[in-house]
Amino acid sequence: MIARTTLAKIHVAKKQLSLDEDSYRAMLRSVGGVESSKDLTSEGAHKVLKHLERCGFTPKNAMHRRPRVATGRAPQIRKIEALLADAGRPWEYLNGMVKRICKVDAIEFCDGEMLGKLIAALQADARRREKR
Rank of each mutant, 00 (worst) to 15 (best):
D20P: 07
D22M: 13
L40P: 01
G44S: 09
I101P: 04
K14N: 09
A62T: 09
K117W: 13
Q76F: 11
C55F: 10
K79G: 03
I107M: 02
K9L: 08
R29I: 08
V12I: 15
R73T: 10
R100K: 15
P90R: 05
P67Q: 05
G56Q: 11
L17D: 04
A121F: 04
G32H: 03
K9Y: 09
I107D: 00
R89K: 10
A70G: 02
R66L: 12
A121I: 00
Y24V: 01
K14R: 15
A106S: 13
K79N: 07
K50V: 10
C102T: 08
A85C: 12
M114A: 14
A45D: 04
R66H: 07
H51P: 03
M63E: 14
I119T: 06
E21Y: 06
V31F: 04
G56W: 02
C110D: 07
D20Y: 05
K50D: 11
R100I: 12
L7K: 08
A13V: 02
L19Q: 02
D86C: 15
K9Q: 13
K117H: 12
K14I: 00
L115H: 01
A74R: 09
H64N: 14
E21L: 12
K9I: 03
V34K: 01
Y24T: 11
Y24G: 02
H64Q: 15
S18V: 13
C102F: 09
L83R: 02
T71L: 10
V98M: 01
V48A: 00
L94K: 07
I10M: 02
L83K: 06
V48H: 01
M114T: 03
S18F: 13
A13W: 02
I101H: 09
V69D: 05
F109Q: 15
E81Y: 04
D105Y: 08
D22K: 14
R25F: 06
E43S: 12
S42D: 13
G33D: 11
T5K: 12
K38C: 10
D111A: 09
S36C: 11
A26D: 11
M97L: 15
R78P: 08
D111Y: 05
G116Y: 02
K50N: 10
V12T: 13
H46G: 04
P75T: 02
S30P: 06
L28N: 00
V34N: 01
D86A: 14
M27V: 10
I119C: 06
G32D: 04
R100M: 07
I119A: 03
G88E: 04
I77M: 14
D22R: 11
K47V: 05
T58D: 11
K99R: 14
M114E: 14
L118G: 00
R89H: 13
R66W: 04
L28Y: 08
I77N: 06
N61A: 14
V34R: 13
G88C: 05
E43T: 12
V69H: 05
L122F: 00
I107S: 01
D39K: 14
K103F: 11
D20Q: 10
P75E: 09
A45C: 05
P67W: 00
